Each structure stands twice: as C-alpha cells, then as structure tokens.
Simulated scan of single mutants.
Amino acid sequence: MIKLAIIDDHPIVLAGLHQLLEGHPKVVITGAFGDYQQLLEFLPGSEIDVLLFDLQLPGVDPVQLLKTIKSIKPSLKVLVLTNMDQVFTARTMLVAGVDGYVLKGIDQSTLVEAIVTVSEGIQYIDVSLRDEICNIFLGTDDGLPLLTEREQKILELISQELTTRQIATQLHLSTKRIETLRTDLFQKLHVKNSAGLVRKGITLGLIPAQ
C-alpha cells in the first residue's frame, strides 16, 4: 500500500481526490494539506511514500518549496498534479527534482498509474507533454542538450531584456563570466545573438512566450 499525501489550497480539489482514491487497494491517503506550512510541520517523522504537489500555492515559490520538502525527506517522491500545461513549467519542475508531472482532469486509473510509477523510482510525465519534454531532455530538437540551472536562469534574464551588467549583479558574478556563459548558450542552442537565443528558447519551451 502506497502512503500518499496531498497539498492543494482548494478544498474542492482535496475532497475530489479523497473521493477519487478512497478505498483503492494500492493507495491510502495519510495526509491532506491546504497550506504548505502545515505540510512542512507534518513531514518530519511521517511515513509518506508519494506527495501530490500543486504548483499554484499562495505565498511560496514551487521550486523553493520542493527543495525544502526534499531536504526534510529526501526519499519522498513528489508527483506534480496541476492545471499548468506549459512545457516550460513542466521542464522547470523536472529539472528542479520532481519525480512526475501530471495534469488535473486525468482519470483514476491514470492517476494511480502515475503514483505507482513514481513510488517505484521511475519518472512519470503526462502523456500530453511527454513527447515535447523527451525531445528537450534527449536532445532531439536540433541537438539541444539540457541546460544547467545557471544557464537556464541567464536565459530567462536575457529574455527579460536585462543587460550583461544587470545579470551579473543579480547573480553575483562578473560580467566576464556572464559573457562566457552567454557564449556557451549561443553554442548549445545554435544561435548567433541574444534575439536568436530568446526565439529559440521560446520555441523549445525553455522560457515562456512574452
């Protein structure tokens, strides 16, 4: 029996998931939380195998919350359950360390399949996003390799039209280092300038469309 916890700030969603999974022979819900602070207080010493994780919790960045959750309970498998169907968002969370990503509205059998899969240490991605995500991670889009966390951040800041100096200040790096990393991005994405970098990043789902 897989011990499952859920965090979602919408009571209707929590009630719906309880109804959907109640009595299932493979899953038992051991905790349901509408607030991330409640979850963080519950985690130490708890017996949870999988956490269903909503990305749109008020007052907290999902990537930072994920890192906190994993630091408290490294063995916990985190399965995102969200309405956010953008490839960029899914990729960001997968790079950050979630074990699976599925969209709300899936049926019971698919949700249980995802829960069981991640509990076994195997990544699960919603079928509607799977091909695009795999293309990015496996490099089938023009030989695109996976960007480092720092390269991803620089790409995002470039898309926001920040200058090299502004990016260096924000990331606490030298302007020379930023220029080197920008050049690395040009090579990885096979472009010649920042405008091309942004266009390619949007096309491949690495940054959101402006």
Rank of each mutant, 00 (worst) to 15 (best):
P145Q: 07
L79R: 02
L197W: 06
I207K: 05
L144G: 00
L155M: 15
G34A: 13
Q64M: 09
V118G: 02
L76M: 07
M1N: 02
F137N: 10
S46C: 14
V60K: 07
L103Q: 05
D141C: 01
T68V: 07
D61K: 02
Q166P: 08
P62R: 04
L147Q: 04
S119M: 05
D141F: 13
P74V: 08
S174L: 06
I29V: 15
A90F: 03
G196C: 08
Q210V: 05
N135H: 11
L55A: 09
I2T: 13
T140P: 01
L55K: 09
K104G: 03
N83F: 12
L173Q: 08
Q37I: 09
D49T: 13
P25M: 04
Q37W: 00
E132F: 03
Q19W: 09
R165H: 09
V60C: 03
G45M: 13
L14R: 15
F42A: 12
L79G: 05
L52A: 08
L57T: 01
Q166S: 11
G121K: 08
A15H: 08
K104N: 06
E120Q: 14
I115Q: 04
L81T: 00
G23M: 09
R177W: 11
E113G: 00
D85L: 01
L79V: 08
A209T: 11
Q108E: 13
V95L: 12
M93R: 02
E47L: 14
G139L: 07
P62F: 11
G105W: 13
V78N: 03
R150T: 15
D184H: 08
I12Y: 01
E132A: 15
T89F: 05
L14S: 09
E161A: 13
F137D: 06
Q19E: 14
D49Q: 07
I207E: 04
E132L: 12
V13S: 05
L197V: 03
R199G: 00
S194M: 11
S174V: 00
I29E: 03
D99I: 04
Q160M: 15
V102H: 02
T163L: 07
L55T: 04
K192R: 14
E120K: 12
L138N: 10
T92C: 01
A114R: 03
L39P: 08
T68I: 11
M1L: 15
L66P: 04
F186D: 10
I125Q: 01
L185K: 08
P58G: 04
V60N: 07
Q170D: 05
E149F: 09
D54G: 06
D142H: 12
T148I: 09
C134Q: 10
L111N: 01
V80Q: 13
L206Y: 09
D141H: 12
L173V: 04
I158R: 12
A15E: 14
